[in-house]
Amino acid sequence: MFFYADNMMKFAFSEEFNDEEYEKGYSIMGVGFDSTTSYKSGARYGPKAVREASYNFEQYNLRFDTSVTTVSYDIGDVQVIPGNYQETGNMIYDTVNELLDKNLTPITIGGEHTVTYSILKSLHDNDPEAFSNMVVVHLDAHFDMRDEYLGEKYSHASVLRRVHELNPKEIIQIGIRSAEYEEYEYVKAHDNITYFSSHQLRQDPKGLFDKLKDINSPVYITVDIDVLDPAYAPSVGTPAPCGLTPMMLEDIIYALSNKDVRGLDVVEVASNEIGDVTSVNAAKVIYDFLSLQK
């Protein structure tokens, strides 16, 4: 649970998730799944590492002149079946269904990026009309739009392709700088996918922020922490040079903070070290987002 004691931020496990009544707010859950990783493994440790890194932050957010006061619960980690995305995905799906029934907005710590699909499938099935009007904001070094990867239809490299097949209103991809040509062709062939490369953003970020400002639909935010340059996030599954800075990521979260956000995930932290810079920057995304909620 994101809560405060002695003016220090802490994550802590709540009691076993049950049928008690919860005040409307946010629910933090970990999904330590790490089975389709193709380069650097370790995303299974992400939930633990990000929670530990959260101890580093204080209640008051100096950048935004706010304090985290919104109600949030940490329900612990979803059970995963190593090597089996289908069964793990079913558990994620069922858990998100329960959160939505309790009027809680899911905030998820991965785990590899495949976990995002099951969350969005739950949002889709619970409210198809809202989902058809949803904008998925995807921050990542990669398109993740392959039809399959290494024989897997559900992979960290194909997760946004599966999300696109759920037919959200739009997908906005931010920070892209690594791709297969088939992915580029797929993105260019669909009018409801827009991307901003990290190189575009370095030269002129205004187009992105104008785009985000114009969103008036429900939003889901998925942050693969490799959107950051490896200087700021070295412990990821597939690092790629020339990425975003933490300040740019902070600005993007700020631009989305007043939208109708239906969920947030931060994935691909592949670290098991206390104080690892990747974990700290990942925890900062959640910290900033909750700091900006009323």
Rank of each mutant, 00 (worst) to 15 (best):
P218Q: 12
P218Y: 13
P218S: 05
V219N: 04
Y220V: 02
Y220T: 01
I221W: 03
I221Q: 06
I221Y: 01
T222Y: 11
V223T: 07
D224T: 04
D224C: 02
D224Q: 05
I225Y: 06
I225E: 10
I225S: 00
I225A: 02
I225F: 04
D226N: 05
D226C: 03
D226R: 00
D226T: 05
V227I: 08
V227E: 12
V227Q: 09
V227N: 11
V227A: 14
V227C: 14
V227S: 12
V227F: 01
L228Q: 02
L228A: 05
D229R: 01
D229E: 06
P230M: 08
P230E: 07
A231G: 12
A231P: 11
Y232C: 10
A233F: 03
A233I: 01
P234G: 04
S235H: 14
V236F: 08
V236S: 00
V236M: 09
G237N: 10
G237Q: 06
G237T: 01
G237L: 08
G237C: 13
T238E: 04
P239Q: 05
P239D: 07
A240G: 13
P241Q: 15
C242A: 14
C242W: 14
C242I: 13
C242G: 13
G243M: 07
G243C: 03
G243V: 03
G243E: 04
G243W: 07
L244F: 02
T245P: 03
T245H: 05
T245G: 06
T245A: 09
P246A: 09
P246S: 10
M247H: 15
M247D: 13
M248N: 11
M248P: 11
L249Y: 08
L249H: 11
L249N: 11
L249T: 10
E250L: 13
E250C: 14
E250N: 14
E250R: 15
D251H: 07
D251R: 00
D251Y: 02
D251F: 06
I252P: 01
I253N: 03
Y254C: 12
Y254Q: 14
A255L: 08
A255C: 12
A255R: 01
A255K: 02
L256P: 12
L256A: 09
L256N: 09
S257M: 10
S257K: 06
S257L: 11
N258C: 13
N258R: 15
K259M: 07
K259Y: 05
K259H: 08
K259V: 08
K259R: 09
D260L: 04
D260V: 08
D260I: 09
D260C: 03
V261M: 10
R262I: 13
R262A: 14
G263E: 08
G263Q: 04
G263K: 00
G263N: 05
L264S: 02
L264V: 13
L264Q: 06
D265V: 11
V266C: 12
V266H: 05
V266M: 07
V267N: 06
V267R: 07
E268T: 01
E268S: 01
E268R: 01
V269S: 13
A270W: 08
A270I: 07
S271V: 11
S271E: 04
S271R: 10
S271D: 03
